[in-house]
Design a protein around this nucleic acid. Sequence first.
DNA 1: AGCCCTTGGAGATACGTTTCTCCAAGAGTG
DNA 2: CACTCTTGGAGAAACGTATCTCCAAGGGCT
Lengths: 385, 385
Amino acid sequence: MTAAANQSGRRPTTSRRLERAGIRDVAAAAGVSITTVSDALNGKGRLPDETRSRVREVAERLGYRPSAAARTLRTGRSGLIGLTVTTYGEEPFTFTEFAYFAEMARAATSAALGRGYALVVLPASSRHDVWGNIALDGTVVIDPPDQDPLVSELYRSGVPVVSDGKPGNCPVTAWVDNDHEAAVLGILDHLSEAGARRIGLLTGTSTDTYTRLSTEAYLGWCAKVGQEPVYETYPAHDPAAGAVAADRLLARPDRPDAVYGLFDPNGTDLLAAARRYGLRVPDDLLLVCCSESDVYATTEPPITTLSLKPRRIGTTVVNLLIDAIEGVDSGTGVDIARLFPPRFRTAGTGPPPGTLMPTELIVRASSQRRSPRTTVSPPRPPGEV
Amino acid sequence: MTAAANQSGRRPTTSRRLERAGIRDVAAAAGVSITTVSDALNGKGRLPDETRSRVREVAERLGYRPSAAARTLRTGRSGLIGLTVTTYGEEPFTFTEFAYFAEMARAATSAALGRGYALVVLPASSRHDVWGNIALDGTVVIDPPDQDPLVSELYRSGVPVVSDGKPGNCPVTAWVDNDHEAAVLGILDHLSEAGARRIGLLTGTSTDTYTRLSTEAYLGWCAKVGQEPVYETYPAHDPAAGAVAADRLLARPDRPDAVYGLFDPNGTDLLAAARRYGLRVPDDLLLVCCSESDVYATTEPPITTLSLKPRRIGTTVVNLLIDAIEGVDSGTGVDIARLFPPRFRTAGTGPPPGTLMPTELIVRASSQRRSPRTTVSPPRPPGEV
DNA sequence: AGCCCTTGGAGATACGTTTCTCCAAGAGTG
DNA sequence: CACTCTTGGAGAAACGTATCTCCAAGGGCT
């Protein structure tokens, strides 16, 4: 026993007694070797059940907790996944996609935990030293901008990266996105069928995939059906700007008789603007916005929303990422990612695999006209309600 | 050069060349010792600027990134902070406090990153092995239940714990909370001044601090002013139950003429219920709810809300935690937490230090009666709007 | 008896840092 | 000159685990 405890001459019995128990202490207490303890606790090696349970019992008694850092160092696996969120200004997450992000992050957290991983929230704008200081097995990137140096560096250094949102120019292991084009076209058709003659769009100024694809789909649709595009843009991270833009859109001489708002707060903003101009919804104005919030079920009138189903996205993204993490050396036992850095792989396999997920249109009163109108009334100046 | 590279006989030059560069490689390339590289990169030791910059340059050229795991193992610091959220059912976060939690978490993330730490999201219900597998420097616990075994174990094992919400029976390093009693009393007084004769409460069934303190404050106030308490409870994590409870409250024979709802969705739920019963807000019913959402600025009518200022809470919690983490051995260089486990400390120092933070009442139309009424109309059965 | 195979387990090494200790060479100083 | 101090840096010991290699003892078989 003492021989085992004093192996390699370490840890003289005289000094600190209050240290947390390590694997050596367990080995000493159980009268076995370190190897045996490790094997017993991890279910490896060839040990009779008796030894296994005895070791486990001793470990339990000593309150032994394996050191995560040592395990990570040894195995090269930390069980940590980075969750990168785009930032505007000082804040870690975007305001505008907030409900979406929150739902998505929640689902991602669940999925990761279910597979034994935990999520670390890491804004893309973080100080470089923070990123470097964390051992990540992989990273989820939400809506990477066109050329994200962070993503490129991660990918280059061999960390699997899966993005929510089809990446522009950054190489990623895989990506997941909604079918934004189909979603927008579906909404425009829906509004047309409800009698809309001139459909407007409230969109953002940023270059992320969501904004870009949605706007392009709108413009394409306009070109196809021969409608002059009617849209206003604003910096989506600024809620105040959203209200102003909504107002601007309804104040135009070519005021639309239906509007789709790309961002969550647009619904209430447009509703408020409509009230200011004396427009009734849905009689004078059809309304749809993209939102995950159920407040739109109880507004007056309830507003039709497009849900991006963030839960499904979050779950899918995380599962793809973990598959990539574990798939790499689960097959041959060889760490392919290290032997063949990304530049070799991409050349052979072409673009990274992407998954398109459907959206869901929740139709409410705001997009269903009771009696279709044939004329478009001119805008009225803001006045009393 | 080759001599330095082959020190201690490791890493024969014949084998794998594609490994990520380690500190040894940098040392070899720069023709210095490992010690010098470490010192140069970390700004320690006594080195001429020339050596320092040369080493840095070589490290940069080789794309050297220190291994977080090794550093953590050596220093005992991971730079990781756990963010524990209470869970109801399967989901990692609560639904009801969602906006609050989101804001709080965002602020906490910012604050942590600003001080070089990152946040790991860890639902309290996570599998034990996930908790054990992560090296945490400390943990933030949101609204711990009365006897949280997780918190107790963390604290016992020497990990600093700071809670958002005054803890019931779990020992923590420190805690931060709103002054819920003052907040509720302030609201009740506000409603009284607006002419309320019978103030009802919509509250939760769970035992967290927020619900408990708020309800107690309400009951105390009722006792003081001689009003019979009028309240309904529901499981706060179930949005559907909230709508039902709101309905129940307004359907009572002793229907209140003013209601305070403790949870975010209560505002819209109560508004909807009021409409169902033909009650006008604020004429027939004064309304206040606790919420961080700004949708209540644009409801019809706008609803007075109590904000718990989650950003301030999140920032404060994290700063307290990091102070505790860094304060422990910044003074004497001795790790007090290890030499004197919590059970020794608590005996001497009494209850953990707590901080109460003020709330903010955002007064809108729903709690200001235009013409004070003196009679309370009986409830009407649900019918047309 | 000699041989191989299985079982149970011990030893040692490596993971990649940080840091404590120590040393050599000048530089000043009496 | 003999000495101390400072500068610049090297060596080696941890940190705590996982795992590869190897060994001893016994059992069955020819």
